[in-house]
Amino acid sequence: MSRSSYVDAREAMRLCSLPSNQALGETLTSLADEDEDLTVVVSDYGRRLFLDGLVERHPEGFVQVGIAEQDQVSIGAALALEGFPVFAPCYASFVASRSFDQIRVNLGMMGAPLVLVGLSARYDSADLGASHCATEDVALMRSVPTATVITPADNAELASAIRWLAAHPRPAYVRITGSTTETCLHASGCDVSAGGVTQLREGSDVALVACGQLAAAALEAADILETTDVSASVTEMAIVSPLRENELLHAIRGKRLVVTVEEHGVVGGLGSAVAEVLSARDDVPPLLALGTPRSYLDGGDVRQALLTNDGLDPWGIASHILERLERSKKR
């Protein structure tokens, strides 16, 4: 595939002005225009993915399985093992959990280079209730040793990841945490093939390590901390598994505290991935893992309200950090 994973500044700005589903659909369609083999397998969630061009120009590249996520993975995996670059988008809350056995067998044991795309992860569809909030998708996919797990922070990074995976197929999971966003943390361009690590801000006291759209909230939290004389660095790590250990250790060196921020439960996600690295070493700072609570959503609400409630908006993140720093001082 000739199109590289590099997304330049102009493209980045354009992509970041679109809803995530549109950025995804357009990227897949462009890839299909270049490669007849590019395949998208959907489980009755294709109409809203801006794939009309792909369906029209490459009908064989669009495979509809109906509301049947297990079949989506089995069929996608077979096509991928037969040499087609295959993407399988689905609600994040269903794609990893509903068909996890198919995932562990096909992507895990057989190494099928199928790319699952988790749409509307965690609170993006929270008005539909707990069933539509993925709390454990990253945790599940991290447990598949062969799977690369990517949580892009904005649409530029999303497009870069999709293009990279189309050119270099491997078992993978790409998680999208928003359907609309004006976040652009890669306005000057990005290339996930370089490792997906973006140093958003330098600082000396606290190391914030974030993934997904909340990287933007982490950045704002760092600004708030600055006003209280706490200097925080912010590192965005798009590839949660396998985690880039050297870059992580470099980011946290000399800091008093490491703070992870993710729109996912703290069990099994980025926080756990970082904890696993830190627990194997003696010379590392303590960890504060921030994420969504260890419970299912009771009822339903809009995303921003829920994030604020969980202390995952900029003020919430800053408060958690200050509280933890205060507790450490008292010891």
Binding site: Q70, S74, I75, A78, E82, Q102
Partner: peptide, 24 residues
Amino acid sequence: EISGGSLGMGMGYACGLALAQRRR
């Protein structure tokens, strides 16, 4: 063709294989 053991998956895999042959 497959790493088997978990029942109920082979038919889906076979469908994917059949589609692949048709596409090729």
